[in-house]
Design a protein around this nucleic acid. Sequence first.
DNA 1: CTGAAAGCGCTTACAG
DNA 2: CTGAAAGCGCTTACAG
Lengths: 365, 365
Amino acid sequence: MKSPRKARPASGAEATTVTARPAPPRTSTIHDVARHAGVGSMTVSRVIRGTANVSPAMRERVEASVRALNYQVNVAARATRSRASAARVGILYSNPSASYLSDIMMGGLEQSSKLASHLILERCEGLAGQKQAVKRLLAAGVDGVILPPPLCDSRQTIAMLRAEGVTVLALATARPMVDVSSVRIDDFEGALAMTRHLIALGHRDIAFIKGDPQHTPTQLRYEGFLAGMAEAGLDVRPEWVAQGLFTYRSGLAAAEKLFEARLRPSAIFASNDDMAAAALAVAHGRQIAVPRDLTVCGFDDTAVATTVWPELTTIHQPIAEMGRAAVSLIVEEIRARKLGGDPAPVHHLLPFTLMDRASSDAAPP
Amino acid sequence: MKSPRKARPASGAEATTVTARPAPPRTSTIHDVARHAGVGSMTVSRVIRGTANVSPAMRERVEASVRALNYQVNVAARATRSRASAARVGILYSNPSASYLSDIMMGGLEQSSKLASHLILERCEGLAGQKQAVKRLLAAGVDGVILPPPLCDSRQTIAMLRAEGVTVLALATARPMVDVSSVRIDDFEGALAMTRHLIALGHRDIAFIKGDPQHTPTQLRYEGFLAGMAEAGLDVRPEWVAQGLFTYRSGLAAAEKLFEARLRPSAIFASNDDMAAAALAVAHGRQIAVPRDLTVCGFDDTAVATTVWPELTTIHQPIAEMGRAAVSLIVEEIRARKLGGDPAPVHHLLPFTLMDRASSDAAPP
DNA sequence: CTGAAAGCGCTTACAG
DNA sequence: CTGAAAGCGCTTACAG
């Protein structure tokens, strides 16, 4: 066995080089394009924004110059002038370890970077920390705040923000309020689609692991499951419904309970991926082969779904896209309000996708 | 059992309202502050940037006005004028499902949003897609590109970018090149620290699961482990070293192999969290209680580390912070080059943290 | 140490 | 349908 080194290997950089670097490329402006096309800068501005009132010939000419000069908009400059993106948007979160959070942030930050709006991340410690967190956001001068779960369902937080004239958007809530904009998927339909999928695979003996009763999607996912079973005329046995809390640990306990029932189900539908991953681990321990002897599926399509083996069949929530949509919508709403309007709240329902992976298969005969 | 509903529950918004909203807050500018403080705008600009050459009295006065008016910098406007942040930075990634990726992005986007630089995310499909992806980035007019693993170690990608005058930064590489800036932790020291921790807990029989031989951190983490064992005068049994590939599935196989050895180790140190999570699942299946009968630990502190139960003791890589640092450093390097300089590459080594969680405990007597 | 002027790259509002 | 002017909020470069 190789003898260990005491000094840090590669602690400094290695003595390898690549090549010398030429001068950095220069980026062109709207005026360069205008000069190249022989038109006014205003026309270029109209073309790149896709505004109406530009003759086709002119548009063609400008677009050619844009390509020729490899022009790219300077979003920072654009933001300076157009009120739209001068928006300051907060994201108030409370559960930083949730796997969906970084995807929400990623989508939101990406969109914000496109619009050159300014995003402010604020963490709220427990429920008691709400007031403090809202105060910090107000001190930062936010025009709007996006609320991911579970704060998306906190009437108190929403009320505090709105009392100060701040625009609010609830993200991934299952229970949107009529006068607060929201971005979400349809949890009921998602669970229904998964249940139909299992039934189409020939499963009749389907168990279900419920989520945390405190969270709004829990009930809808369960109802979607019940609806799917009912429309196929299948029974839902009480001993095949286990209570979970959306955590891996609760999934471990729930799965153990399901396996102790007299009859073993041929499929387990867990209402999120963490609990489905736990069910997989329990099955593995009991030497139950997945998917040969047991189908397991989840909900959300978070990172763990593709980490475990076999990879989980699950309902994909387009979380990053929801983050993007949330920023777009709230910035638009803020803009409208700044212009003196009173925009109606928008409720944006995004499509989910059933990801058919290796953890599910036809029911054993 | 409750009868299922056919219609989508809560498919539209609920009939609940909150409160009416007052007018949105207006944000103040540098000139408002200047007027309030009775000074020139330039002085305010100097104070908020923390520039030298401002008398303490003046600074005090301006800061009071900043607080009074709740002034917040408009980063977009700032970016317009200061060349620094006009930077366009690409992030070229190839493994979108990697759990560290969204954290890198999150840190990077956050920093970029602060600097009002422009981030462009580009995905490269397989190794063959490198050329295409680089072309797309060049077409987008990038000044610099950040390379997360595994592309951080691709000499070809780096060479292509630099040939076009693009500044490159390698993120989380274990083998930095001397003339390419990098941001990383010390993998050797991290593994050494974990090994020492296990030994301090009384473990003598420690098994190790190696990572993918293609990835640069693999060797260093293994060497860190060997060094720790050697300095304590402990043997490393060949049958207690298993080869993995950094995937959960490979961890499953590696752990099974370790348990088939004649003697069972009292601790398993997996060189990443996915494989440690797999080892946990295998132990669970074999009714081996963790941490009572077996200690399991990982490396990276990705989301899965706190998803599984018991939660994993692991080495925390400050991934989001590394993303932030990468953006800061590359923007600074781009700025320096734009001003005509030839800045030396920077090698930034961030501290790791040993997260002592529930999956590790003292060795059984 | 402080400030008035010019300008960043774009869009708004106003003329033709 | 097209464009010249003014201005967004800030910083750079130049005077004092």
